[in-house]
Design a protein around this nucleic acid. Structure first.
Lengths: 331, 331
DNA sequence: TTGAAAGCGCTAACAA
DNA sequence: TTGTTAGCGCTTTCAA
């Protein structure tokens, strides 16, 4: 059995209250007591039990982060930025992916019950579940999700940069742009489409909906395009993975990118750099880090008014020659 | 204040023990009691406090995962695989990155104190800290780390596939191979180098050490090569990010890859596909998932003998024409 | 400066 | 089937 505060107390010949004091604030006990306790704790290899401590303190010193089905580089980066700041603030991070789980709302409630607050990404949790969390007094920050007036939100700028992207595409001669991705999937995507339309000027914008935001969906979209034999001047995709899948399939189908058609993504994941993909860079780590800070303010009760933040994004224009890739696999 | 079990009990007109029973196993109370309790809980919007529950049960229903400075796609994938299985097993996941923190050992001990068991990746934690965890009875699985006889370990196969890689490179005419990466950084890397040497046949293998495993280190290695003007026949890099950074810099310096020199990586991250990089695929998700299962066995006490697992890896040969990429950025 | 004692919210004997 | 009660390991009044 692990030693408890009682073991340390009896070994040091003091009360458990004194052990507690000596360990959490050595100043407030006598020097002698302090060293007796320290020695006893050392010898017993004593580590305070967090559950007991937290139960008494009525706090968890832990934050949760909830992210959706979509895995991929974007979420990984956000989580890393979040963890870094949380650790700095002395908080552990509890991870929850709602990927393909029906019981998302229940799981999130459960997570809330073991943390001091939650960051919720994207469309992982229905609005009513969020409101019920708020009613329960759970500090909450929404990340990349439609802001709700009374709940903190953090987003990356979409519309403005999407306009810039549209301007870039039309300047490159695109008179017909196809947006790939479903604006109903997330507010981020809807905003990107809106910005694109707003910035397209005389160019036409049509929408090809995809069920997911992954490479596979991009590939299937590409298959359809190749089969139809009809190309727009540019594809503006809702994210990089979609764009990369699309581009690959187009090239495999004999379409030259960017000579025959332009393709752009969104996020600027690592693969986008190596694929020479024009895209929009989101400050992914910074999103995670900022969310952690906002949540901390809420948890400490330093703020009661909701904050709504938008971080800047950046258009990244890349030009690459067509590259052909072959793959062989051997175990 | 959040309602407690006592609030529910008094509202339902039963004892707290009955509430506890009704909520955790509805079968064992009378139908009538069950519905009274359910109703009261519902009306109060009662959610059991995990701390109280866990303190009484003496378990956390949470696992930790510790990963090193190296972020990047590899770790993200492992974590996702881990979380998926942990959630399936009814456990939450606590995340800890030791990235650039001196107090790693202390943080890991702290994490251990709030979880039922830990998966430790790579060289994040010194051996003595691991042994002290074992002494404390913390269930432990080492992932991508030198196995210690008495502790569970899980690794991806290195030597054999590295031999296959060497065979591929020499078959392609490489008589001089430079290994890029520091075998002292991790046992994985050391094994890759050993396998490469073992499979190189008559080819010579030299080693260029890099301080990190990231793109920046690869670029700096590339700069040095370009400056020296001397090329081996092939660069076998310790991981993909290194290889991608190196390849980019070589190409920028006028070296044609793969015409002038072959470059290979390790991991098969997404960017490797788009860069046309020859590499070795690791089952990253599966590593995370398997680690979670092994840890669960330990936590449940289903097994006392340590298990040492090695998952298969796969050589992925890609051929790509040189592609030139230009980047412009606009905010 | 220290100790005694009352909880924090819950589970699990044990009794009824 | 239900209630009583004694903890789980810790913090924190309140007294001494």
């Amino acid at each position: 059995m692990r030693p408890t505060i009682r073991d340390v107390a009896s070994k040091a010949g003091v009360s458990i209250a004194t052990v507690s004091r000596a360990l959490r604030d050595p100043q407030i006990v006598s020097k002698e007591t302090q060293s007796k306790v320290a020695l006893a704790a050392q010898e017993l290899d004593y580590v305070p039990n967090h559950l007991g401590r937290q139960l008494a303190e009525r706090r968890h010193a832990a934050n949760g982060i909830v992210f959706p089905d979509l895995s991929g580089p974007y979420f990984a980066e956000v989580v890393l930025g979040y963890e870094a700041v949380a650790a700095e603030l002395g908080r552990s991070v509890l991870l929850l992916s709602t990927r393909g789980r029906e019981s998302a709302a229940a799981m999130v409630h459960d997570l809330a019950a073991r943390t001091d607050g939650l960051v919720v990404l994207g469309r992982t949790v229905p609005d009513d579940a969020l409101h019920s969390l708020v009613r329960r007094g759970v500090p909450l920050v929404l990340l990349a999700r439609t802001p709700l007036a009374e709940i903190d939100s953090l987003n990356a700028e979409n519309r403005q940069t999407a306009r810039a992207l549209a301007a870039h595409l039309t300047a490159a001669g695109a008179g017909a742009i196809t947006f790939v991705g479903d604006p109903d999937l997330s507010p981020d995507i809807a905003e990107r489409l809106e910005g694109l339309e707003a910035g397209a000027g005389g160019a036409t914008v049509t929408v090809t909906r995809t069920p997911e935001l992954d490479e596979g969906s991009g590939q299937r979209a590409g298959d359809a395009v190749v089969a139809s034999g009809r190309l727009p001047d540019a594809f503006a995709c809702a994210n990089d993975e979609l764009a990369l899948g699309l581009m690959t399939t187009l090239r495999a189908g004999g379409v030259r990118v960017p000579d025959d058609v332009l393709v752009s993504g969104w996020d600027d994941v690592m693969a986008a750099r190596y694929a020479g993909l024009t895209t929009v860079r989101q400050p992914m780590r910074d999103l995670g880090a900022t969310a952690a800070r906002m949540l901390d303010e809420l948890i400490r009760g330093q703020r009661t008014e909701p904050r709504h933040e938008v971080l800047a994004t950046e258009l990244i224009i890349r030009t690459s020659t067509t590259s052909t890739t072959g793959t062989t696999s051997t175990t």
